[in-house]
């Protein structure tokens, strides 16, 4: 494992924990898209079905379990415990517009036409666009709490670091996977606008608000 891969995993973990803590400490999930969180729970579930059939390392297995557990806990906090604070009115992105094309594409473009492989491919495609309901919510309300911005920055950085990891693996091991690579590029591109706002505003101590 190279440093980019490790930092990517760490960044992903930090994002997930920031979100859980934010909801738990403020007793509120306002400004958070429950729909994006449902998509992430689906992503982890369909990607990590090999959890018990394909052992790689203790690190790998524990991270998978942590990611899955945290994503379900987040969905529970939003739709269960702190439901009263959930922003139903603004979180209106139609997730079937992401789920259906990802599923169709996974059937058409994959490495192997087998159930586990199609589900893995589906999770890669879905993850690349799963943040859209959250970005849509931020654009609809025109602002994001600073802690939500940190969450989005850590989550966006994770795939960017994975891209560097894949670049590294390509040159050192001749390893590449076009499905993961192209999806990873799309996923990172979707955050570009946000990265710009984060660096130009949030890091200078201002709240992230969109120009009217």
């Amino acid at each position: 494992m190279n440093v980019f891969r490790f930092l990517g995993d760490l960044s992903h973990l930090v994002a997930i924990v920031i979100l859980l803590l934010k909801i738990w400490k403020t007793r509120s999930c306002s400004g958070i898209s429950g729909r994006s969180q449902i998509l992430f729970a689906i992503v982890f579930t369909t990607r990590y079905l090999d959890l018990f059939s394909n052992f790689i390392s203790v690190y790998n297995t524990s991270m998978k379990i942590v990611y899955i557990t945290c994503s379900y806990a987040t969905v529970y906090l939003i739709y269960g415990k702190f439901k009263a604070t959930y922003d139903f009115n603004h979180d209106t992105f139609r997730i079937e517009f992401l789920l259906v094309p990802s599923a169709i594409l996974a059937f058409l473009v994959n490495h192997d036409f087998s159930p586990l492989e199609i589900l893995w491919t589906f999770s890669i495609y879905l993850e690349s666009v799963a943040i859209l309901p959250q970005l849509f919510l931020v654009s609809k309300t025109g602002e994001a709490e600073t802690i939500t911005s940190h969450y989005l920055f850590a989550l966006g950085s994770y795939r960017l670091l994975y891209l560097l990891n894949w670049l590294w693996r390509y040159f050192s091991q001749g390893f590449y996977d076009l499905i993961a690579l192209l999806s990873g590029i799309l996923q990172t591109v979707l955050y570009c606008d946000f990265f710009y706002l984060y660096i130009s505003k949030v890091l200078k101590g201002k709240k992230l608000s969109l120009p009217a």
Partner: peptide
């Protein structure tokens, strides 16, 4: 064949 899935990744 180097076109393997990065299944060792997360």
């Amino acid at each position: 064949d180097n076109l393997i899935n990065p299944k060792d990744e997360l």
